[in-house]
Design a protein around this nucleic acid. Sequence first.
DNA 1: CATCTGATGGTCT
DNA 2: GACCATCAGATGA
Length: 204
Amino acid sequence: MTFTNTLAGVALIPLPERFYMRSTGMVAKDLLGRLIVRKTSDVAMTARIVEVEAYFGEDDPASHAARGITPRNSIMFGRPGIAYVYINYGVHYLLNVVTGREGVAGAVLIRAVEPISGIDAMVKNRPVKNKFNLTNGPGKLTKALDVDIKHNGIDLTSSENELYIATGAVEDFKIDKSPRVGISSGKELLLRFSIKGNPYVSRV
DNA sequence: CATCTGATGGTCT
DNA sequence: GACCATCAGATGA
């Protein structure tokens, strides 16, 4: 079964590698409004990115890369446009996109998305009473989109892949910049962005 | 509404 | 052996 990568008749064009080969903060902001495309053997899902968070290298105490390269975080130092997926609290998979040029650590955590198509499949993956609870958190959206560790290292710039990020409609998004919680070193970089007022933005 | 807790596994000290 | 880029459910006000 093959899918034509379109949504409402409009082609879902992947963002190119050069999109990600910029400063992590810029990429984070620019990812708002873009579309995550997830294709399975029998279903296609799309969702709009509505909240992101930037993680840098050794200057960012909250980053996995803060203490240099390790087997787990090595993808953060690699090519831009690649997915960095890891399990956290032993329970949830978190989806990031690697940014910056190769050799420099950086990634953007996808914190919340708005379901656009294939919503029935998402609900099947992650049953909820309230639809606004489906994908309004980093662990929730991976469950709904069936994203897990097998996507660690996947190229998000290719529409051939079962997971990629498409351009989406460019609109005038309002940015709500707020600090990360739980960091008190004084060096925190405070780069969380969301589409203000979107009902799928996470609540913490 | 706010605050707490258990689940659960990989990574790093 | 401690620490988490989380979440759902429980409890109390």
